[in-house]
Simulated assay, not measured.
Amino acid sequence: MALLHEDLVLLDAAAPDRETLLRELAQVLLKKGYVKDSYPEAILAREAAYPTGLNTKGVALAMPHAAAEHAEKAAILVARLKEPVVFKEMGGSGKDVPARLVFMLAVDDPEGHVIMLGKFMSIFTDETKLVDLYETNDPAAVVAKLEAVLS
């Protein structure tokens, strides 16, 4: 099943803060039928308790997600931000992460989620791939580059 869709690649998304950004991105997934009505609040609560910012080399990012019970079907929304939005660093350090890429996950299978995160790490640890992904201006190309890693 495809997790990536061109209509879930948002280039030049903008929001004044993390909460607004998360609400707006969650609404995209909700309107397209990937998540349940409970997802927007669930993602805000989870991000507050378990931050998902990563100070990766090249392009800082965040991977917000909610429990599988809030998803209708699995998908990954990719948002490239016009201006960085501050997330807190994963792992509880409390450090700020000026995220410029956001991967919002709608996960319907907790085990598959762990496997997917592991595959994503191969991009996140490669500064060249991450910068290339950030600089890609075509949703179809973003999907193709991510599918090459996730397959």
Rank of each mutant, 00 (worst) to 15 (best):
P64E: 04
R23V: 05
Y34T: 03
M116G: 07
L101C: 09
K82S: 13
L29D: 02
V78L: 08
L10F: 13
G91I: 12
G118S: 05
G94R: 07
A75H: 03
M121F: 11
V35Y: 00
H113N: 04
D108T: 11
A67Q: 14
A48C: 10
Y50D: 15
L22G: 02
A106Y: 01
V85H: 07
D109Q: 12
V9D: 06
K36C: 13
A60D: 12
V35W: 00
A79S: 11
G33A: 10
Q27K: 13
N55I: 03
V59D: 08
A13H: 11
V86N: 11
A42K: 06
G33P: 03
K57R: 14
L44S: 04
L8Y: 01
V102T: 03
K73E: 10
M104N: 01
A71L: 00
K129E: 08
A75Y: 01
A15G: 07
V97S: 06
T125R: 15
D17Y: 12
V97P: 02
M90R: 05
P51Y: 01
L81N: 04
L25E: 01
L44C: 04
L54S: 05
E69T: 09
L25V: 01
A26R: 05
V107F: 00
A74H: 07
D17H: 14
T128L: 12
P16V: 08
A45N: 15
K32M: 13
M121A: 13
E41S: 15
K57D: 13
A71N: 04
A99F: 02
M116N: 06
N55R: 15
L8S: 02
D126I: 00
A49I: 12
G58S: 05
D109W: 11
L54E: 09
L101I: 00
A67Y: 14
P84S: 03
H65Q: 07
L77R: 01
G91S: 08
D109L: 08
Y34C: 03
F124C: 08
A49N: 15
K31T: 15
M104F: 03
E6W: 09
V107N: 01
P40D: 05
A14Q: 13
H65P: 02
E72K: 13
K129D: 08
L10N: 09
D37H: 12
E83W: 06
A99R: 00
D7M: 09
A67I: 10
L117W: 02
D108K: 15
F120P: 05
E127L: 14
A99T: 02
M104E: 00
K73T: 13
Y34N: 01
A26T: 04
H65R: 07
A66F: 05
A66H: 09
M121N: 10
A49T: 13
E89T: 05
A14Y: 11
I123L: 12
M104K: 02
M63P: 08
A45T: 13
A68V: 07
T20D: 04
L22W: 09
V102L: 00
G94L: 07
D12S: 11
E72W: 09
I76D: 04
K95H: 12
D108C: 10
